[in-house]
């Protein structure tokens, strides 16, 4: 299993349920260098990126209760925490966030939903890796904040259009293979 598709749910639940520092250390070893790398590519200098990374990881611990594996993979969830910290630190403006969903984080998520979402995220990672180099780097630039809105407008047909249809194709193929 590659790192991209590793499932970190057990570690996050261990933090949520028993404040498990060993589980947190595992998450830290994997995600902290990625969060810091992401923040530096987004324009933070090394010391700001270091400071923000520690805050992002501390937020992960504090918000472990809010993690819902049927709605987001660990990497998606941690990305949104890092993205929010980036807006606070680099853009220095308020960051309006959508309301929480009615079922909230208290209810235990459906196992089947979590598995479906995990498969989808894996497919998404593969689909992005398989994009032509130029398209992939445009997507990366969009997330690092290197593209203007009109440039983003030119590529947004891509992630949802191309990637979603690729996911659909990959799932079809998978279903055929299992028949």
């Amino acid at each position: 299993m590659s790192n991209t598709t590793k499932d970190w749910t057990a570690q996050i639940y261990a933090i949520r349920d028993k404040q498990d520092q060993a589980a947190f250390a595992e998450l830290f070893a994997h995600f902290a260098p990625r969060v810091k790398g992401f923040l530096m590519k987004s324009g933070a200098d090394a010391s700001l990126a270091e400071e923000c990374t520690q805050e992002v990881m501390a937020t992960l611990w504090r918000k472990a209760r809010m993690f819902d594996p049927s709605r987001a993979s660990a990497s998606t969830w941690i990305y949104t925490i890092a993205r929010n910290r980036k807006i606070d630190a680099l853009r220095k403006q308020r960051r309006p966030e959508p309301e929480d969903l009615p079922w909230g984080p208290e209810a235990e998520p459906e196992q089947a939903d979590a598995i479906g979402l995990k498969q989808e995220t894996e497919q998404l990672a593969v689909a992005i890796k398989e994009l032509p180099e130029k398209q992939r780097s445009l997507i990366e630039q969009a997330y690092y904040g290197d593209l203007s809105h009109s440039e983003i407008a030119e590529i947004t047909g891509l992630p949802l259009g191309t990637i979603k249809s690729r996911i659909r194709l990959a799932l079809e193929r998978l279903r055929h293979a299992m028949k």
């Binding site: 902290a32 260098p33 990625r34 270091e50 987001a72 993979s73 998404l124 990637i163």
Partner: peptide
């Protein structure tokens, strides 16, 4: 959610940066 998932993949593939020894 899908766009956030794309962001998650981009972050997973980001060039790793060394965190300081006492970061944890």
């Amino acid at each position: 959610d899908s766009y956030d998932a794309v962001g998650g993949v981009v972050m997973e593939d980001a060039k790793l940066a060394n965190v300081s020894d006492d970061a944890f």
